[in-house]
Design a protein around this nucleic acid. Sequence first.
RNA 1: GCGGUCGUAGCUCAAUUGGAUAGAGCAACAGGCUACGAACUUGUAGGUUGGGGGUUCGAGUCCCUCCGACCGCGCCA
Length: 551
Amino acid sequence: MKLDDALRAFGDATAAAVKEQYPEVTPQVVFEAPRRPEFGDFASNVAFSLAKVARRPPHDVAKLLATEVLRNAPELGEIFTEIVPVGGFINLRLAPQIWHAELSGILRENESFGKTPPHGARVSLEFGSANPTGPLVVVQGRSMSIGATLANAMRFCGYEVFVEWIINDAGGQLDALGRSIYARYRQTFEPEFPLPENGYPGEYLIPIALGIRQRDGDRWISAPEADWLAYFSTAGRDELVAEQRRTAGRFGVEYDHWQSERELHDSGQVSEGIEHLRRLGLTYEADGALFFRATQFGDDKDRVLLRGDGRPTYFCMDVAYHYQKLKASDRVVDILGPDHHGYIERIKGISSALGYPGRLDVIIAQQVALMRGSEQIAMSKRAGEIVTLDDILDEVGVDAARFFFIMLAVESPLTFDLALAVEKESENPVYYVQYGHARIASVLRNALADDVAAARSASLEPLVHPSELSLVRRLAEFPSVVRGVVERLAAHRLARYARDVASDFHQFYTECKILTDERDVRLARLALCLASKNVLARALSLAGVSAPDSM
RNA sequence: GCGGUCGUAGCUCAAUUGGAUAGAGCAACAGGCUACGAACUUGUAGGUUGGGGGUUCGAGUCCCUCCGACCGCGCCA
């Protein structure tokens, strides 16, 4: 019998017992995994919800239900080695053969274990987006790691996922970029030529300026700004976006769509969004500007769509952009930086206003502070002291970066210790997990090839040691962990789970010799190794981290 | 001032949306390789979940109120 069937059988029997005792209620019997292993494999808290109706303390109700269930369905006693009422909970422990069946299922499904077949639901995910005015920095690394992990987990759960990047190339900042590059261009002729105020002082613009000089020589020196501005800013945008794409690719993150903000304006999608809001009666004019009635949707202020001079605001563009995304998807998720949380109400207001309430989730990825050991790394854009994502990848590698960035819940500020991330020691969680995988691979190398082949269909009966059963139980959690990651948009659970799997494996390894002389035990343990390796590799790959066979 | 997020072991963080005696890692202390990778593992110690009040069978989680930290409050993007 399978685990799900066993739990369903117990749930049905419990529901029947409740019906019998308290005909007026139709209970929902759900099971949760208790925190402490002593409480068994699963527990139900039905008794708590019945306490009021029953006019008896939860513990008595639990006790009654437990005995009733066993009386009505004595065969459950075979499947559950323990059915104990404790303080209102009904704790269940499953017989080893249920776990054996679970393990053979994991082996059979192999790489698709935990995977949900495509069901057609579409999700749009936007993350990482940065202004096209410079290289990507740490905070985008965090946003991309979380976003890409969520995207992987969603695909694994059968969603059709669109990963999007928005290029903020329509505002005044692009003019500032153009002027900054122009200044760098002029400096190749007159070193004293000043950088513009509110410009971008980073030296990364110099190569772009040199490129222009190489192509065009001195033809822009005496030209008026109106002639060169669009040319310089567009050239800068193109180069910098290409650079950002390259970094994202190096980071293992693939985007389905790079959406230019200008394009949204040029294609008329912005006007379309405005018209839509106008038709819904959600706009009004005041002081020569067009406002969106954001206060109707929880914002503390109405927001400007079109300025007094008729130019659309950034928010206006975002309305249009989200309108497109909401039309095309069943769920839309934005991951924004910490300075944007004042923006959440506004953007969620759009979702409701456009007729898609509850479809939009906005996650704020909190700040990342950089350390190297005990030394704090200052980052000041103004002084040009920027630590780029590329710098970090050079220093710690993709695996450590991807793993560190998803380790914490998004809403917690993250301190990224570069020294720790390269440490090949126990305190580095990436190596801990990867070591687990490499260790399994090593055991499998040492085993006879025939044994490994035979293990896939071997009898699992010999697996009775607590550390063996704990490991199986852990592996069996994988599908629900991935589902939890998707439902709660909580990528950190995957990192934590990978750690737990590695930990349970190490404990099993320490307590049980795998390559023993007894063939049936050896094969069963090799089967457990195969399943563990598979689940570990799966979890790591969803996180974008490699699973090495040796290190 | 208004609004948001947060405050959990010495440090860094979890806690399955209200469940049991709040859990991990690191650091500290004491153990374990004539066993496949010791990059591992076992144990000990460490807590009034910022303070106070409330809601109920039950609160780290929900409500109120203080304290503290970070952030937002443009016809910027």
